[in-house]
Amino acid sequence: MPLDRPPTRHRASARARMDAADLLTAGVDEAGRGPLAGPLAVAAVILDPARPIRGLDDSKKLSEARRETLFPRIVERALAYCIVLVEPEEIDSLNIFHATMTGMRRAIAGLAPAAQHALIDGNKLPPDLPCPARAIIGGDALEPAISAASILAKVTRDRLMVQLDALHPGYGFALHKGYPTPGHLASLQRLGPCALHRRSYAPVRLLLDQGRLF
Rank of each mutant, 00 (worst) to 15 (best):
L94T: 01
N95P: 12
N95Q: 11
I96F: 05
I96D: 09
I96V: 14
I96K: 11
F97Q: 15
M101T: 12
M101K: 12
M101E: 12
T102Y: 12
T102I: 04
G103R: 07
G103K: 03
G103S: 13
M104D: 12
R105V: 12
R105I: 13
A107F: 04
A107Y: 06
A107W: 00
I108Q: 00
A109L: 14
A109G: 13
L111D: 01
L111P: 13
L111V: 07
L111H: 11
P113V: 09
P113D: 03
P113S: 10
P113Q: 03
A114S: 13
A115N: 05
A115G: 06
Q116T: 07
Q116P: 01
H117A: 08
H117S: 08
H117P: 05
A118M: 10
A118D: 04
L119M: 10
L119R: 09
L119V: 09
L119D: 03
D121R: 06
D121P: 09
D121I: 03
D121Y: 04
G122I: 09
N123P: 00
K124H: 14
P126C: 11
P126N: 14
P127D: 12
P127C: 14
D128L: 15
D128Q: 15
D128P: 08
L129Q: 13
L129K: 12
P130C: 15
C131W: 00
C131M: 14
C131L: 10
P132E: 06
P132N: 08
A133S: 04
R134H: 12
A135K: 08
A135N: 06
I136W: 02
I136G: 05
I136K: 08
G138H: 05
G138W: 06
G138F: 00
G139S: 10
G139A: 03
G139I: 05
A141W: 05
L142N: 02
L142P: 03
L142D: 06
L142M: 12
E143P: 02
A145L: 03
A145G: 02
A145Y: 09
A145E: 04
I146C: 04
I146H: 07
I146M: 00
S147M: 04
S147G: 08
A148I: 00
A149G: 07
S150L: 04
I151E: 05
I151P: 05
A153Y: 04
K154Y: 09
K154V: 00
K154A: 09
V155I: 00
V155Q: 09
V155W: 00
V155H: 04
T156W: 05
T156E: 02
T156P: 10
T156Q: 06
